[in-house]
Amino acid sequence: MATAKSTMNIQSTNGALRLDPNGDLVASTVRVLRKDILKAVEDAQTPVVLVLTATKQIDSLGITLVLGLFKSCQNKKLAFSVEGASPDLMRVFKLFNLHKFFPIAEATRE
């Protein structure tokens, strides 16, 4: 189930909604992403997973977006987690202690 635009891949697998943005979560992308994610999670019933394997950078807006998504999931009583965070992203999430709110998994090195 791919979206028309190439901002993000959306998959429903293993009983989870996997949102996989194609690039960075930065000011220039977040607004489009938000629209797409909003649409994607609107009727979601399953846990939501944000896959960040393609994301190298995250800026203030990106973090806000992640938190907003988490919050929305929380409101819908859906579990939320992040996967595939690069070491840099991991560092940011950890420094901000975001891993205390939702599980964050580091990208597995190949």
């Binding site: 607004r31 909003l38 806000t64 977006l65 907003g68 919050k71």
Partner: peptide, 24 residues
């Protein structure tokens, strides 16, 4: 930096979060 956090309670939902300036 001994500890850092974002006040998660203050975060609005996805629809409104981008308009917020969240304090760290």
């Amino acid at each position: 930096c001994l500890y850092a956090f974002i006040d998660i309670e203050a975060v609005a939902d996805l629809e409104h979060c981008l308009e917020q300036d969240l304090p760290v």
